[in-house]
């Protein structure tokens, strides 16, 4: 009979954490590069979209390097930051055909109902808390139409908030990465975000997208934090 020790579970949560820490590492590089670009401009004129184009080689490299997990990456400017555009996303995506493409949004409030991106968790959370954030799972109808996680960090130059650096992980890719890890456990398990929404699951009763609030979860055994990643692993009773 298989016995799980807490060591086994600790190993699984470590590997889940490492999976997302790799993504955060790529995001941190985007932040560093953005700050470096801002530092060059600090004394003179304001940053422009042309300056931000300097991020592209890094963005392309990270999309290629993390092809299995990261499908979109870039920097999203705080509105009013840039000298030549009221709002801007320097955002690149791997399309279904494998090509790397920029995201070009209509950010004109007179024509688009989707021009204000500052309400989305991936922007609002890092701006409000000053901390990194793991937004989702959510339906990203702004950028990809995919069910996604977006990992983001605030970008500051000195005291000034410039915007956020972020990367998209489509949920199907996240699932492919973490389900094999969860299957090592003897019983079913869910990865649950800070709001109680399931992000990945080996429990058919609680699938990704559903809510697993603690008081409802009579079939829940124990929760384990995943390091500094705002997900918990919930071990469930076998069906």
């Amino acid at each position: 009979m298989a016995l799980t020790t807490s060591v086994d579970v600790a190993d699984v949560v470590d590997r889940v954490r490492d999976t997302l820490e790799d993504v955060f590492e790529a995001v941190a590089r985007v932040r560093e590069r953005t700050v470096a670009i801002a530092a060059v401009r600090a004394a003179g004129r304001p940053l422009t979209t042309v300056d931000l184009a300097g991020l592209r080689p890094l963005l392309h490299d990270r999309l290629r390097r993390h092809r299995d997990l990261i499908s979109g990456i870039g920097f999203i400017a705080e509105p009013g930051l840039l000298g030549d555009a009221p709002a801007w996303l320097e955002w690149w995506q791997t399309s279904r055909d494998g090509e790397l493409r920029p995201l070009l949004l209509d950010l004109d409030p007179h024509t688009s109902a989707y021009s204000d991106y500052t309400h989305w968790d991936w922007f609002a959370l890092p701006r409000e808390t000053g901390q990194r954030a793991c937004a989702g799972p959510y339906v990203d109808y702004l950028c990809s139409d995919e069910y996604s996680l977006t990992l983001s960090v605030p970008v500051h130059h000195g005291d000034r908030f410039l915007g956020v650096a972020a990367a998209d992980v489509y949920l199907r890719h996240f699932e492919a990465a973490v389900i094999p890890l969860l299957r090592v456990l003897p019983g079913p398990a869910c990865l649950v975000n800070a709001r109680g929404r399931v992000a990945a699951s080996t429990d058919a009763r609680h699938l990704a997208g559903s809510l697993l609030k603690r008081p409802d979860a009579a079939d829940e055994v124990r929760r384990w934090p995943c390091g500094d990643i705002p997900l918990v692993l919930a071990q469930m009773r076998s069906a």
């Binding site: 030549d84 555009a85 995201l103 949004l105 209509d106 688009s112 109808y141 702004l142 950028c143 139409d145």
Partner: peptide, 13 residues
Amino acid sequence: MLVNKLSGGALHA
């Protein structure tokens, strides 16, 4: 401005 109104998100539609 470089924004292309013809692509992106809901406007893909």
